[in-house]
Design a binder for these strands. Sequence first.
DNA 1: TCTGGGGTCCTAGGACCC
DNA 2: TCTGGGGTCCTAGGACCC
Length: 403
Amino acid sequence: MPQPDRWIAHLDMDAFYASVELLRYPQLKGLPVVIGGRRADAPQQRADGSWHYARLRDYTGRGVVTTSTYAARDLGVFSAMGLMKAALRAPDAVLLPADFDSYRKYSRLFKAAVAEVAPVIEDRGIDEIYIDLTDVPGVRDAVGHDPLGGVKAVAREIKNSVGRATGLTCSIGITPNKLLSKIASELDKPDGITVLTMEDLPGRIWPLAVRKINGIGPKAGDKLVKLGLETVGDIAAADPRWLIEQFGDSYGTWLHHASHGRDSRPVVTHSEPVSLSRETTFERDLHAVHDRALLGQIMDDLCERLASDLERKRYAGKTVGIKLRFEGFVTVTRDLTLKTAIRNAADIRAAVGQCLKRVTFDKRLRLMGVRISNLSHTGQDVAARAAVNSPGTVAAPENLPLF
DNA sequence: TCTGGGGTCCTAGGACCC
DNA sequence: TCTGGGGTCCTAGGACCC
């Protein structure tokens, strides 16, 4: 039996934010709990020791579900759903405000715990990572006699390490590449391990809905279904030339490869940011003229926050952009590339002013944002930064500038 | 009672240069 | 005098992901 040349794991923390909250409020275990809403009230302990929680039914205003517990999902409440809609489905669900500092702390803990077992890690956000297991001793040494056994044992070791460090569970998919591992980690959630080889493609992957592939979103998913392609196997059976006619050269070719489980992307252990941004959605839609002073203040504040992000991370940028979202959810962007990189709030604000002049304000605004890209480093040596950015991982060698 | 905030990548047209 | 081809940068929008 031919063995894959790589073993790549995808690790996904189970209902991450909600599970972190349950560590703090274990009495909520098993109940429908929703994280979200900027103004949600934190739980309050009464004089008699009992707790008072905000309920979904009492929430008014804008906001979406950030995460929900499995009990809430059973009631039809999922991530990105509007809170008002969620309240219709689960009025009695407990509503907790998001505590990102806490989630970031647990994120660092679980990644460090994984790194003790397998150090080649690619960060994919706060609650998931890819891990290249190919050269982990327990995997490498099992090649030839019991590869699947070796891989599963290492997966259990990783889960145990994460559990000891955080008290949280995760799900792991292990396959020859990132694309398949991302799918596999979802097949036995929560607290599961799924190992697949290419031979499992027809039995385990092809029956799945096309949207299970990372990279097929709402638009492409709808289009595929309208074309009569509902499962991954349907895409795999389609003529690649026809896929290219329908979806263009690049995406059509990718669809064909993805449906056949082919993906050669490496696990990337270090990356530099491309852009930094800050944005805010208003409690009520604001009028460009009537609320002009308030809008100016909000933009000042966004620029201040972006400037402090740049300072903390030691970047400067040459391209400044604004994002405006009007009532009706129509979004407009404008950007401006300067001759030199900037980093302070006043310079950013001035460039934003130039961008704003190029927009017609004929509707009320629901969101404003500011973004900076074309980034360059300022000060401090790069190797030290890499170590800070990905604790416990072996940083890739940097291309140092000559001057 | 629609639709947060932080990102990445891709496409496509026009400017500009050789 | 009417118009090639390639490369890169800038700008705007959109799909997608966590």
